[in-house]
Amino acid sequence: MLLSSATAMLAAARAEAERLGVAVCVSIVDAAAWPMAFIRMEGTILGAIDVSNKKARTAALFQMDSADFALIACPGGGAYSLENTNGGLTSFGGGIALKAKDGSLLGAIGVSGASTEDDIAIAQAAAHALTA
């Protein structure tokens, strides 16, 4: 993923968060789950910094959205407690795996600070900016 793509995604995420009237943290990582870009909007709770990063890392490391990861990492799931691996992951929505048209992983985005539904919507808006 290019830095210019990551910064365009940050701008799209911020615009969507402002439209929704929420303050969030947005983390973008490359395909190896290393940080590429990050913003923390004014007024965002400090705990959202780590959560946004973990959502992005979860999506990149397992090549799936964090909401889908939650289905296997929950009690009764096939990999219960998997979120305790890899230095800590997150098993709820707001992390989206970013894939190229050929299906290869480009990286991931994680959004935290609003409701899970708003975090997902903001991440989806940012992901759309990658493909636009």
Rank of each mutant, 00 (worst) to 15 (best):
D118R: 07
A108F: 01
V26M: 07
E42R: 11
A59F: 01
A79S: 14
C25V: 00
S52E: 05
G103Q: 07
V26F: 02
V24F: 09
D65I: 02
A125Q: 12
A23D: 09
C74F: 06
E16D: 12
K99N: 05
R14S: 12
L3E: 12
R19Q: 12
A132T: 09
S27V: 03
A37T: 02
D30K: 05
L105G: 01
S66V: 03
A121Y: 06
L10I: 10
A126W: 08
L3F: 15
D118A: 08
S66Y: 08
V111M: 06
I96F: 04
T44P: 04
I49S: 03
A12R: 02
A97F: 00
R57Y: 00
L2P: 15
A129L: 05
T44V: 15
T85A: 11
G103D: 11
A17C: 15
F38T: 05
Y80F: 14
A73F: 09
G77P: 10
V22M: 09
L20T: 12
A48V: 13
A13G: 10
P35I: 12
E83G: 13
G87S: 08
A60I: 00
T44A: 13
G88M: 06
L89W: 08
I45V: 06
L10K: 07
A32I: 06
A129E: 13
R14Q: 15
V51Q: 03
R19V: 12
I120S: 13
V51C: 03
D68M: 13
M1T: 07
I49M: 11
G43E: 14
T44E: 15
N86F: 13
G113R: 06
L130W: 03
M41I: 15
A12W: 01
I45N: 02
P35R: 05
A56K: 01
I96P: 01
I39M: 05
D65T: 00
G93N: 15
N86C: 07
L2G: 11
F38N: 00
A13Q: 04
A126G: 14
S81V: 11
Q63A: 05
A70H: 03
T90D: 07
D119A: 07
A97Y: 00
S27I: 00
L10F: 06
G107F: 02
R57C: 01
M36A: 14
G78N: 14
M41W: 08
F92M: 10
T7R: 06
D30I: 05
E117L: 12
D118I: 05
L89E: 09
T90I: 15
G21L: 11
S104N: 08
A17Q: 14
R57I: 02
A132E: 15
S27T: 04
A114H: 11
Q63R: 04
A132Q: 07
E16H: 13
D68R: 01
I28A: 04
L89Q: 08
G47T: 07
G76V: 14
G113M: 09
D68I: 08
K54E: 10
N53P: 04
A56S: 01
G93K: 01
D118G: 02
I39L: 08
L106N: 00
G78M: 14
G110I: 01
D118W: 08
A67C: 11
C74L: 06
F38M: 04
T131R: 07
T116M: 13
